[in-house]
Amino acid sequence: MMNYEDAGGDGTPVVALHGTFGRGLTFAAVATRLLPDYRVIGPDLRGHGLSDRGGDFSREAFVRDVADFIQERELAPALVIGHSLGGVTAYQLAARHPDLVRAVVVEDIGAVTDTTQVEQPVLDVTGWPRRFVRRADAIGFFAATPAPEYFLESVAGNGELLFDLDDMMAVQHGNAGSWWDDWQSVSCPVLLLRAANSFLLSTDLAAEMVRRRPGTELVAFAGAGHWIHREAPDDYAEVVRGFFARV
């Protein structure tokens, strides 16, 4: 079962794919700003949020899930946004199922996600608490992370994490790799967003992605970190809205 958030309205549907540890809820601020022209639909990807846990966490499985999600809801060809893990899924979906994607926005993730380009592609979470007795304990624990509110969205009312730690390790390992073939195979319009303070997408890698795939639009967000859609939702929505209008 795949849970999802739906901003509603009569606007053009946009499928928004979150990053590791996240939920479809992470795009709420952007979804509000894209109304009424666009209706953001954000699924909880496998192993995350209120969707099913366990199973296969390969790239193929993530791509298949989103392809099925789009087909079952008759959203094709869809506008697709993907952040981090969701960004890899977004451009792989566009490459492997070109009939399902009209245009794709890739947020702060590269065509290479392993140690050849990223210093720490896998965050070791095996020692994290699986449940917090008090909300204050969760707040204190995630205060040390770069995006506390992002992680807190995945803490249930009873203090339990809405993801399994072993699942998250498998998700991260499955996402680490060199995906140039997928990136270069995307035929639809692509907008690549890079955070100036990114720890996953370097300036050089972003430039190489544009060089290898001519026509890619690249926009950098000064002062922003990896979670651009949360840190700069006004600017993010403006850039994405302009891109969608052009395609």
Score class of each variant (00 low, 15 high):
M2L: 15
N3I: 01
G8M: 13
G9V: 08
D10H: 03
D10R: 12
T12I: 15
V14S: 14
A16E: 03
L17M: 02
G19C: 10
G19D: 10
F21A: 09
R23C: 11
F27P: 01
F27C: 13
V30D: 06
T32E: 15
P36C: 03
Y38V: 09
I41D: 02
L45G: 06
R46H: 12
G47F: 00
G47L: 08
G47W: 05
L50Y: 03
L50D: 15
R53Q: 13
R53S: 07
D56H: 07
F57C: 06
F62T: 14
R64A: 14
D65F: 00
D65S: 13
A67D: 10
A67Y: 01
D68A: 15
F69V: 10
I70Q: 11
R73D: 12
E74Y: 01
L75K: 09
L79F: 14
S84P: 14
G86C: 11
G86A: 12
G86D: 02
G87Y: 07
Y91E: 03
Q92R: 15
P98C: 14
L100T: 04
V101I: 09
A103H: 04
V104N: 05
V105N: 00
V106A: 04
E107Q: 02
D108N: 06
G110H: 06
V112S: 03
T115A: 11
V118I: 05
E119S: 05
Q120Y: 07
Q120V: 14
V122C: 10
D124F: 00
T126L: 13
G127R: 12
W128V: 03
W128Y: 08
W128L: 07
R134S: 11
R135F: 11
I139L: 04
F141C: 08
F141P: 05
F142I: 06
F142M: 04
A144M: 04
P146D: 01
A147T: 09
E149H: 08
S154T: 06
S154E: 01
V155E: 00
N158P: 07
E160P: 00
L162C: 10
D164G: 09
D166P: 01
D167M: 07
M169T: 15
M169Y: 09
M169G: 11
M169P: 13
M169I: 15
G174T: 10
G174F: 04
A176P: 01
S178C: 14
D181I: 12
D181G: 15
D182Q: 04
S187H: 11
C188G: 08
V190A: 13
L191Y: 08
L193N: 06
L200S: 14
S202R: 11
S202G: 06
T203S: 11
D204R: 04
L205T: 01
A206L: 02
M209F: 05
M209A: 13
V210N: 10
E217I: 13
A222T: 09
A224Q: 04
A224K: 02
W227L: 13
W227M: 12
I228K: 00
H229S: 09
R230L: 12
D234M: 12
Y236C: 00
A237M: 04
V239N: 02
F243T: 03
A245G: 14
